[in-house]
Simulated assay, not measured.
Amino acid sequence: MRKIVLISALLIGAWLTVNNPFSHTYVTGLKTETMPVAGQEHSLIAEIETKGKEYEVEPSNARKDPVWKLIPGYNGLKIDVKASHEKMKKDGKFDPDKLVYQEVSPEVHLSDLPPMAIYKGHPEKPMVSFIINVAWGNEYLSGMLATLKKHNVKASFFLEGRWVKNNPGLAKMIADAGHELGNHSFTHPNMKQLSAPAINEEIRKTNEVIEAVTGAQTKWFAPPSGYYKDEVVEIAAAHKLGTVMWSVDTIDWQKPSPEKLINRVMGKVHNGALILMHPTESTAASLDQLITQIKGKELQIGTVSDMLSEKRVMSKKMQE
């Protein structure tokens, strides 16, 4: 009997606790506090997924071009929903400036296409590259290197093998400054007129002397004076070198005034421009202003490898 009374008392106590108006208010309060927050988060994620698609960009495949031979691919952009939500959840509302992007690689790369010369980068990539061919002009190199360093610009120096052999200190100075080194043949011949064994020898010897002097391995070949034939490009590819030409020529060997050189380049500069120059007095005197004006057009300046890569140039807002 006493056991029955105790159980009954416990049951009555439990009923009173659950049905207590204060308990009911507390539980209801918990529900009303948590449900809207969860609902808002789910709503924001859905909004990011939907609206974010407007800001996504499809990747662009590398392709052959009837005029420009090969055009490199360019990464697309996809919204990272989770990372974007992390940046927006504090304010609880969609903000396109807080979107976080992931790069999406194209399906076709330069390496998937037959060897062909490359004259420029992707037309949507806001970057240019200086191709500086070096077989002479030692007296202007130090000044050009100082100007490039002042502007924190990396260029691609295409070195003649014979020049590297005769000027190992200057070649190492260029490499030590962080610039990219390319192959510019060994004796600066007309590559179009050479036999296959001679072409192979020009490229091979230059690669070897550049690596022996600087420790750098080249990725690109620039034919002297722009003379080449399909066989030259194919043999360069056998040495794992891409063949690059140019889309903007300073014509600095004609000794133009700095003003004329700058006006010529700025009148032709474009997204993906490969700008040909040499260590001349004209280029050395023009380089500071040329860099300033190119950057003023919101174009980055990078190496040939940077420019021909599929990696996107991201705006400052996207990088934050």
Rank of each mutant, 00 (worst) to 15 (best):
L6H: 11
S8L: 15
S8Q: 14
I12W: 05
G13F: 09
W15A: 15
T25Q: 14
T25M: 15
T34V: 14
T34K: 14
M35A: 15
M35K: 15
Q40K: 15
L44H: 00
A46N: 14
A46D: 15
A46R: 14
K51D: 11
K51W: 06
K51A: 08
Y55V: 10
E56F: 08
P59L: 04
R63V: 02
D65H: 08
D65W: 00
V67W: 07
L70E: 03
L70H: 06
G76S: 04
G76K: 04
V81R: 04
S84E: 05
E86Q: 14
K87Y: 06
K87M: 13
K87C: 09
M88H: 03
K93P: 01
P96H: 08
E103A: 03
E107L: 13
S111R: 14
I118R: 02
Y119V: 03
G121Q: 01
P126G: 09
P126C: 07
F130T: 04
F130H: 03
F130N: 02
I132Q: 03
W136Y: 06
Y140R: 10
G143M: 09
A146F: 10
T147E: 04
L148W: 01
K150G: 04
H151C: 03
K154L: 11
F157Y: 12
F157L: 08
F158L: 05
L159M: 09
E160G: 07
G161D: 06
G161M: 03
G161C: 06
G169I: 13
G169H: 12
K172F: 00
K172Y: 05
A177P: 09
E180H: 12
E180Y: 05
H184S: 08
S185P: 01
K192E: 08
L194D: 00
S195P: 04
A196Q: 10
N207V: 01
A212S: 13
P224T: 10
G226Q: 09
I235E: 06
A238F: 13
A238R: 14
H239K: 11
L241T: 00
T243F: 05
I251G: 07
K255V: 09
P258V: 07
P258H: 03
I262L: 04
L274F: 10
I275V: 10
M277G: 12
H278N: 12
S282D: 02
T283S: 07
L290C: 01
I291A: 01
Q293G: 05
K297P: 11
E298V: 13
Q300G: 10
I301W: 04
G302N: 00
V304Y: 03
E310P: 01
R312P: 01
V313S: 02
K316T: 11
Q319W: 13
